[in-house]
Structure formats: C-alpha cells, structure tokens
Design a protein around this nucleic acid. Sequence first.
DNA 1: TTTATTGTATTAGTTACTTAATACAATAAT
DNA 2: ATTATTGTATTAAGTAACTAATACAATAAA
Lengths: 123, 123
Amino acid sequence: MAWNLNSDRPIFMQLIEIIQISIISGKYAPGSKLPSVRDLASEAAVNPNTMQKALAELERSGLVFSQRTSGRFITEDVAMIEDLKSTLAKEKMKQFLESMRQLGFQKEETLALMSKFLKGDHS
Amino acid sequence: MAWNLNSDRPIFMQLIEIIQISIISGKYAPGSKLPSVRDLASEAAVNPNTMQKALAELERSGLVFSQRTSGRFITEDVAMIEDLKSTLAKEKMKQFLESMRQLGFQKEETLALMSKFLKGDHS
DNA sequence: TTTATTGTATTAGTTACTTAATACAATAAT
DNA sequence: ATTATTGTATTAAGTAACTAATACAATAAA
C-alpha cells in the first residue's frame, strides 16, 4: 500500500480514500480481514487514533465491519463495492469537468484535450 | 464571484485557486485593479488576514502585485496567465487520470467513460 | 493640509486535527 | 486458566488555520 499522505487535507480523510481504493482494487478482498488498527497505523505512520477515526467512518458507511476482538473485516457485499467504484468514478469525472469548465474549457474541448494529452502531449 | 468555501481544505488555499480562476477567466483583466483586501475578505466572508495570506501567495508567484496604497493589480503579462491556464489544465488532467487509474480504469477506458458520461449517462 | 483608503503587521484567542500515553473489556490463542 | 490481541475510549499536549481587534506607514483623494 502506498500511504502517500500530505498536509493539504486532513490525514484521516486521506486514509479513508486510500483504504476505499484498496478495497475497490481488490487489495483487500470482500470478506477478508484487515490488519489491526495498530498495524495499519504503524504502516501508514500515523497515530492509531487517526487510523481509528478513518476506520470508524468506513464502518459508518457500511464498507467494513468490526468484530469486538477478532478484528475488522471488509464487507462481503460485492455490489456495494462495485457501487462505490462507480460512484467515485462519476464524482471524479464531474469534478474534473467542472474544474476544466472553470478554466474555460467546454466539455468537448476537454475531451479533445484529454485525447491529445493521452497521445503523449506533455509539452 | 462564487466564493464557495468548504472545510475540506485550508480556506486560504481555496481562495488562491478561486482568484486564479477569476484571473484566467478574465473576470479580473490583466493590469486591472483588484478590490481591496478588506473588500475581498468581506465578499468572501473570511477574515482579512486569511485573504491577505492568499493574496501574498499570489503575489509571490507573480500573478498579482501590490502598490503600497493605490491597491493591488493583476499582472499585465498575458503569457503568464496563459501559462497558468495551461499548467492548471494539465495538472487537473494528470490528477484525474491518476485517480481513475487507482479506481481501476486504464487511460483509454477513462476516455471512453468520459465520452459516455458527456452523452448524458448519469445513471 | 487634512482625511480616507491602502497594504501590512502584531497579538491574542478559538477550533480542528494530530499525536502521545494509557486504559479497559472482550475474546482468540496458548 | 492464563496470556495476548482486538476494538474502543479517555485525557493531555502540540500544531496549524482561522478569526478578531487593532495599529501603522504610505499615499491617493478631498
């Protein structure tokens, strides 16, 4: 896992997103056990309280659940995970298009620019 | 101006971006005078110190400059403004593609998804 | 010349985030 | 039965961002 944290946004929010990505990508499979709060905190080089805060939010959203002493597990609801992937993708696209619009690029213009960019135009 | 501020990121950073956008979009023309720190702060409903902090950073980057008592002005260097537009656009594209890659979408897949999304697929 | 406006600086207080240290109850592992 | 590990909670301290209030020098405007 790449725990690339920066100080631009609250760490716990960044942790939430990184773990979500890890679940979506399958690094953490549905139904599998997560490392303990302490281990995850150690991995990410953050305080256990901060990691706990992130996990609590993931739990609130239903993506993970905890069992008192055996540990914390990823949901087995693969549809929920697929939904999350789809939702996040749409959010990203919407935000991106809005950003580009603010910069003065219409939708089709943005699409063309993207296509050009992908063809290796990093001028 | 839409001073839509949230608590996800430091306010002064959001102010910087909003003002950059306003310059790029032409709302603040090259060479023109900005409202005073106090007026801008009032508009945005933030503390003058916070607005000052944002403006100081814009000044450091050369996008605006201040004249002791007559006020603060947008650079007349239109090339710098165009460069900023181009730079920001590329940054946005890069970040967006990276986000989509993390979600599991390859570049071409993302492009196709975007195209579909633009055609009105908000399912 | 006087006044008002400008950018700028300073000091203090509040809040949210983070870290640190510690503790406890539940239970899996031994 | 004992021990270790789990999630969880609490208290305290430090830091950065933000607000608030105020002040000052420079100068445009009157």
